[in-house]
């Protein structure tokens, strides 16, 4: 199941690039949503960015597996709200379905691991901490190099474009091969999972 979630995650991380492309071309949708820019958007951004960061810290600080999964739920949910604020509605909905929905599986793992005694605490070993620290520093370097080079000049349009149709078309034309490969992989995972579940019974 975690493999399945991982593959879905890979599929979805490829999508923001597509949506950005579409938002730039900006096709109208009939109903115009006068979302006031300025203070309202700023307040929403800071509230939900703050929620995301605090919940992410909560994931690291908690010792109970189920609490960690719960904080992860809030962190990913807040990020999905940020996507809504950027008018990337498709990514936001997919974020909710794949990531926030995927947390359920994590949660169930946590629940099952602690079903013997609910207050089992999770203490990472020093090796774990060292590896995690290395990965974090690497990520920090990558992300900050992108941030430093980014151009924050032009504000993005807050009118949602017709993203679903465009992404669907691209998926079945330009990105057909990756799409099919992901589909076949998911199929293999499902058959494998069914096979393993069967074997256990006998």
């Amino acid at each position: 199941m975690s493999l399945q979630v991982g593959i879905l995650w890979l599929c979805v991380t490829a999508l923001p690039a597509l949506a950005h492309e579409e938002a730039a071309s900006g096709v109208g949708t009939g109903v115009v949503y006068a979302v006031p820019g300025g203070w309202f958007e700023a307040v929403m951004f800071y509230v939900f960015a703050g929620t995301a960061v605090l919940s992410a810290i909560g994931v690291c600080v908690s010792r109970s597996v189920v609490r960690m999964a719960t904080w992860l739920f809030f962190a990913l949910g807040a990020i999905s709200v940020l996507y809504f604020l950027l008018a990337a509605t498709f990514i936001a909905a997919i974020q909710l379905i794949v990531y926030v929905g995927g947390v359920l599986i994590l949660l169930i793992f946590g629940v099952m691991l602690t079903s013997q005694s609910p207050w089992v605490r999770f203490t990472p070993s020093r090796l774990n901490l060292a590896v995690a620290g290395l990965i974090c520093v690497g990520l920090l370097v990558c992300l900050s190099s992108i941030l430093l080079e980014a151009d924050f000049g032009a504000p993005l349009s807050t009118t949602p474009g017709v993203t679903v149709e465009a992404i669907g078309r691209r998926m079945l034309t330009h990105y057909l091969v990756p799409f099919e490969i992901a589909g076949v992989l998911l199929m293999i995972v499902m058959v494998g999972a069914a096979h393993l579940a069967r074997q256990e019974k006998q």
Binding site: A93, I97, T163
Partner: peptide
Amino acid sequence: SLNVGILYLLA
């Protein structure tokens, strides 16, 4: 009014 209305509702 979202252009992904049904996806949102399912999520």
